[in-house]
Design a protein around this nucleic acid. Structure first.
Lengths: 207, 207
DNA sequence: CCAGTATCGCACCGATGACTGCTTTTATTG
DNA sequence: CAATAAAAGCAGTCATCGGTGCGATACTGG
């Protein structure tokens, strides 16, 4: 008998700067504060239940505001995850497919190695449902597609996007989320090596 | 100021039939009822918050019982996930590594395709923390190790367990948890094919 | 069949989470 | 600079979650 709050005005759909209304200073500041509070609380992992009042209190914002802008913890987490995982890092351009992928995989590995990030992913999956799951991927697909497209323009035959996801993205995410194995960059490079048979690796030293 | 309940007697560590104490009729029945209630509630996905009182009510069990046997929602979910994912299906034995893996991957795909199972995984990840994540894997590693060991006894060189995880388990889980792409058995077979180059597939018709 | 004990049900309490009108502040627009 | 409307703050209500002490119950071993 809950879950639906038919009254909330909620102008913007809780995504980025509210569509056409008021991107002004305060809203943005509140949004940032809430986002940071969520990240911190999720990172703390004190089993603090991550509830709206707690988030609001830590953000120095009134709970009402959070209730109105975001409807529930799930939506809030999805929003945070979205802005955390989209536009994050730039797509590498090393000149070769292998180089791009190795760089990209290494970036992803480093990103997912952060315990705070990992906690955010888990929490978002837990209460963000289908939407939250999507949010945890961010641009990944577009970014990989861009790499692939560039390589195609360059000439060579490329693996499909799905194949790439299976061979690269999936192992990274799986290890991070489900196991406690370390996400070494050497291992990430191995993934690329298995995906692209033969020929020597492009990046001798990492970063 | 929560998370630790120093008083609870809690004889069995909330795992399977209580170690040496009392596997008797009622306890087992209660346990089963609670487990089923959790599964149903998680499956319902009504955003019902999945709280202890709610679980207890649906199980027809008093909340106190749940509080005492399991300490928190996280532990409860971990327990349910563990018993859901361990000893589930038998390790296939088709006589060849490829056959075993294809069969195993297909089973896993079918298993993870169930929306209820998926919801359980997500919820467990969300509030079960590290332990919950481990619980979602069940015997997978041992089972794959068994398949590998059998193949080694048979003679052939086998891929490493980690490699197997990256190439098979990870994509399955990733697709299920993070995307809404279907987990077709044909695709699962492709995964095996990419893992084991050359030679024709062993199972012409599935199941 | 009986004693012993683990386990469950019941009544109860404090704390706090979810949600709602109303007022006040702040950003935009002319 | 003034008017307007959106968004945030405030106070307060209601439901219910988390947790405890005690008595009743059912399982186990002799």
């Amino acid at each position: 008998m809950s879950s639906v709050s038919p009254s909330a005005p909620r102008t913007g759909p809780a995504g980025a700067p509210p569509a056409g209304s008021r991107p002004g200073g305060r809203s943005a500041r509140v949004r940032a504060a809430v986002h940071r509070a969520v990240k911190e609380l999720v990172a703390d992992e004190s089993g603090d239940a991550l509830t709206i009042p707690v988030v609001a209190a830590r953000a120095g914002v009134h709970a009402t505001t959070v209730y109105r802008r975001w409807g529930s913890v799930g939506e809030l987490l999805s929003d945070v995850a979205t802005s955390r995982f989209t536009g994050g890092f730039v797509v590498p351009d090393t000149g070769s497919l292998r180089g791009d992928l190795e760089r990209y995989a290494a970036n992803m590995a480093r990103d997912l190695s952060d315990p705070d990030t990992l906690a955010l992913v888990r929490a978002t999956l837990g209460s963000g449902g289908e939407q939250g799951a999507a949010a945890c991927q961010g641009d990944r697909r577009q970014q990989l597609a861009a790499i692939l497209e560039r390589e195609e323009a360059r000439g060579g035959g490329t693996p499909s996007l799905d194949h790439l996801t299976d061979a690269l993205v999936a192992p990274l995410y799986y290890r991070a989320v489900f196991t406690d194995l370390p996400l070494a960059t050497a291992w990430a490079r191995d993934l690329v090596a298995r995906l692209l048979p033969d020929e020597a690796p492009q990046l001798p030293a990492d970063r």
